[in-house]
Design a protein around this nucleic acid. Structure first.
Length: 484
RNA sequence: GGCGUCGUCGCCAAGUGGUAAGGCUAGGGUCUGCAAAACCCUCAUCGUGGGUUCGAUUCCCACCGACGCCUCCA
């Protein structure tokens, strides 16, 4: 079955057909690097991480471009975000940019987010942006004013097609006072002439200045992916004006469609309100990662569909953690058994389970093919977990081939695609081996005590280990331990 | 005011024109020396009111409510 996606541009679920079969060019709007990232950013970039991972898993060659905005993103006071932060921190603007770009990648790496193939910066693509503005002027889509260059929205009839917004005739100028040289309220800046104090400025045909926020994405997407490419992503909150302006500029300049498919991610909310820096209701990723495993954060985000909003709370994350533990307990159990094979059991014992694994894999792919339905995919992994638990807890011997197949399936679907199943933990290395030896010894001592009905002593061993975060579980075929 | 999304079990959350996945929590049971883990069982008629239909939670209309965007935000 073919991959289907909800294309925001058409407002319907359609077959996803790349321009070149097997080759997918995608662009995702990246962050403005002026502060630490929070969980809201994680929702967007984890969503596209899943998209990239799945597309690659299905055999596509994906070129993933995600920009870093380091200039031109203004506050409504007209002040550049980067400059404001720099002034507050008594630092150079590019120091701020460097600090938070690193911080962003640090957090994304910690979450297991696949790095984009190209992370272009706006400040590193000034010539490309100037060239694009010149093209727009030549084609009559932009005009030069006293304070900069503006895109003439009236010259592009399709403006508003993504966000389904119509340019209003009346009440122009009631707002949007920013940009005094505008002819129309809906026109937007392509190039802004800088005042003396504005440190971030470059030479241009229109005088020293800096680019408007939207033009960077158009210029950089065009440079690395071509005039027309397959997939454009971002947060739904940027659908207007940012994404709309990108389309207008690019299509007006290139006389070609911009992105064929638009995928936009729903916002993360707190108590029903969007998590955002301006509201101050955010949890930074650095804090979140101190309290939760990255896999649990991913599990939490993927439990709802990427296009829907998610309401964040500690309780919600903890509940996600419990669900994740259930799945991982089964995985660890299979790995335990794999590490300690029972003598005399044929490697292919219980091989009747192999088709069951294939069946769940097919269901998983079917779910993901349906507009990246990760919540459904996770539900399928949970159902698989029930089957695995039944098998592993039964009296039936399970051969190493089957155990390996179970582990491989979890690693492939839960690990490679969703990033919620880690590789085997602490099974290698001298420390791990030593820990395993020590715990095994204690398990032996406890087994002896139990044999002698000295339950107080047996329980003492178990309780003290639990205090150290090591949980003992007596199963039909022996005692296993897990580290919490 | 305009545009849009959403409203499914106590909580989170999929989904379908023919009586609703999964997780968390709760209750009962099995297993266990006791636990833990696991398994089994129980727990919803899908915001309200109309309409279309043999039949709607799923399609249409209205209303109510929540949220997002319209101004910086992933």
């Amino acid at each position: 079955m073919a991959l289907r996606v909800f294309n925001v541009l058409k407002r319907e679920k359609v077959d996803f057909v790349p321009i070149t079969p097997g080759k997918i060019n995608m662009y995702v709007c990246g962050p403005t690097v002026y502060d630490n990232s929070h969980l809201g950013h994680a929702k967007t970039y984890l969503s596209f991480d899943m998209v990239v991972r799945y597309l690659r898993y299905r055999g596509n060659d994906v070129l993933y471009v995600q920009n870093l905005t380091d200039v031109g993103h203004l506050l409504d006071t007209g002040e550049d975000r980067i400059l404001k932060k720099a002034r507050q921190a008594s630092a150079l603007p590019m120091q701020v940019v460097e600090t938070y770009a690193r911080s962003y990648f640090e957090d994304m790496d910690a979450l297991g987010v696949t790095r984009p193939d190209i992370s272009p910066r706006a400040s590193g693509h000034i010539p490309e942006q100037i060239a694009m503005v010149e093209t727009l002027i030549h084609k009559g889509h932009a005009y030069v004013a006293d304070d900069g260059v503006y895109f003439d929205v009236g010259s592009y009839p399709e403006y508003g097609k993504l966000s389904n917004r119509r340019v209003e005739e009346g009440e122009a100028g009631s707002r949007a006072l920013k940009g005094k040289g505008k002819r129309s309220a809906e026109d937007f800046a392509l190039w802004i002439l800088a005042t003396e104090e504005h440190i971030l400025q470059w030479d241009s045909p229109w005088g020293r200045g800096y680019p408007g926020w939207h033009i960077e994405c158009s210029a950089m997407a065009g440079k690395y992916l071509g005039a027309t490419f397959d997939l454009h992503g971002g947060g739904i909150d940027n659908i207007f004006p940012h994404n709309e302006c990108e389309i207008a500029q690019s299509e007006a300049a290139n006389d070609a469609p911009f992105a064929n498919y638009w995928l936009l991610v729903g916002s993360l909310t707190v108590d029903g309100q969007k998590m955002s820096k301006s509201l101050g209701n955010f949890v930074t990723l650095k804090d979140a990662l101190k309290r939760h495993r990255p896999e649990v954060i991913r599990y939490f985000i993927y439990q709802s569909h990427y296009s829907n909003p998610i309401d964040y709370s500690d309780g919600a994350l903890e509940a996600a953690g419990s669900g994740w533990e259930r799945m991982m307990t089964a995985v660890r159990f299979a790995r335990d058994k794999l590490r300690h094979p029972v003598a005399g059991v044929s490697p292919d014992a219980a091989s009747i389970f192999l088709p069951v694994l294939e069946d769940y894999k097919a269901k998983f792919i079917e779910a993901m093919d349906d507009d990246f339905n990760a919540p459904n995919a996770i539900a399928i992994l949970q159902s698989l977990t029930t089957e695995v638990n039944k098998l592993l807890n039964s009296a039936q011997p399970v051969g190493v081939e089957v155990l390996k197949a179970i582990n491989d399936h979890y690693l492939e679907l839960g690990g490679k695609v969703l990033g919620i199943v880690p590789e085997a933990e602490s099974t290698s290395g001298a420390d791990a081996a030593r820990l395993e030896g020590v715990v095994r010894m204690l398990i032996e001592m406890r087994a002896q005590a139990r044999k002698e009905k000295q339950f107080a002593r047996a329980d003492q061993i178990r309780d003290q280990l639990k205090d150290l975060g090591i949980v003992l579980e007596d199963r039909a075929d022996g005692t296993f331990f897990r580290v919490e």
